[in-house]
């Protein structure tokens, strides 16, 4: 990757010698992995529902599998976006639907009961991973503690009252003027300005 990045540099521009720690944490990378997994599974469910229902002994439920495929793709896109925490929680909800559906395939007379059991175990494992990753992302991005009060940061060394209109001496450029009034407007009463904190 570094080699490719350096190849695309303009001549004379700085090139990477070695890379340092990334802003992407391990939980972010895990979320991306789960997002790509979701996209892959969703595509398989959309494009090959018959193979999936046959393997699980759930023939006749192809439309449901296709719908789950669309759901997986939506969750995958969200998990790959900056809203990945929401994407992962939507995956957890989807995992719940998958578990409920697979439980239906665990009946005694299903000749593919073993496959369904393996799929159920896999979904339960992925559910744990989804939930753990989503929870760790929540901990990482949540605003904690009381918000600070910046009420003493006016930015006016001479104080707010002395600063109102202090730059009216600016010679405004002609290209930034609004249309002038045809007749002078009546002046409005001054509002009660909030007191600086």
């Amino acid at each position: 990757m570094t080699y490719l990045a350096n190849m695309s540099r303009n001549e004379g521009d700085p090139r990477i010698l070695s890379t340092g720690p990334s802003s992407l944490g391990s939980q972010d990378r895990m979320a991306r992995g789960l997002g790509w997994f979701s996209l892959g599974l969703g595509l398989a469910e959309l494009l090959a529902p018959h193979s999936i229902t046959r393997a699980l002994g759930m023939e006749g439920r192809e439309d449901l599998v296709r719908a789950y495929g669309a759901r997986e793709i939506a969750a995958g896109v969200m998990s790959l976006s900056v809203d990945r925490e929401l994407g992962l929680w939507s995956r957890v909800a989807g995992d719940g639907l998958d578990v409920a559906t697979l439980m239906g395939a665990m009946r005694e007379d299903n000749p593919k009961r073993g496959n369904a059991a393996a799929a159920l175990a896999l979904v339960l494992g992925v559910t744990l991973l989804d939930a753990a990753t989503a929870a760790s992302l929540r901990g990482k991005t949540r605003r904690s503690g009381r918000p600070r009060d910046y009420g003493n940061r006016s930015g006016y060394p001479k104080g707010l009252s002395a600063s109102r209109g202090a730059a009216r001496d600016l010679v405004k450029p002609d290209d930034m003027r609004a249309a002038p009034a045809v007749t002078p407007p009546p002046s409005r009463p001054e509002p009660a300005h909030p007191r600086p904190m």
Partner: peptide
């Protein structure tokens, strides 16, 4: 380096 991937790298001097 990509979406949400900023790194403090060693690079050649300008």
């Amino acid at each position: 380096h990509g979406k949400e991937d900023i790194r403090c790298d060693s690079v050649t001097d300008p």
